[in-house]
């Protein structure tokens, strides 16, 4: 990639939009995942009995079980949200950038 092309793409508003939107989105989703997971694992570390609370008085099932399963499902949903937006919005922007350099 030569200097001229680098400058051209760098100044392309579509590129700037792609980078800021995508990376902002990726960071937000990453933080969401990290917060959920670290809350889960630190609860276990600091207060293990919290997750050992039964879901109801006459049940042996603890709230830790649905919470654990929910963390797994949450991780999958996040990947789905990102992939959906990236495959449409981000790829459209990216195609505009690619087309604009083809014109030269």
């Amino acid at each position: 990639m030569n200097k001229e092309l680098v400058e051209k793409i760098k100044n392309d508003p579509n590129y700037q939009e792609l980078v800021s939107k995508r990376n902002g989105f990726a960071v937000k989703l990453s933080i969401a995942m990290l917060v959920v997971y670290f809350t889960f694992i630190l609860t276990i570390a600091f207060n293990p009995s919290a997750l050992g609370t039964p879901i109801s008085a006459d049940s042996v099932t603890t709230i830790g079980i649905p919470i654990g399963i929910a963390v797994i499902i949450f991780a999958f949903i996040l990947t789905g949200i990102y992939t959906k937006r990236a495959n449409s919005e981000f790829d459209d922007l990216n195609n505009k950038i690619k087309n604009s350099i083809k014109d030269n």
Binding site: A26, L29, S30, Y37, F40, G68, V71, I72, A75, Y82
Partner: peptide, 14 residues
């Protein structure tokens, strides 16, 4: 196993 899974979204995003 949850620990093994949660790296995946990060891999996708980053």
């Amino acid at each position: 196993s949850i620990g093994f899974l949660v790296g995946w979204p990060i891999i996708l995003f980053m």
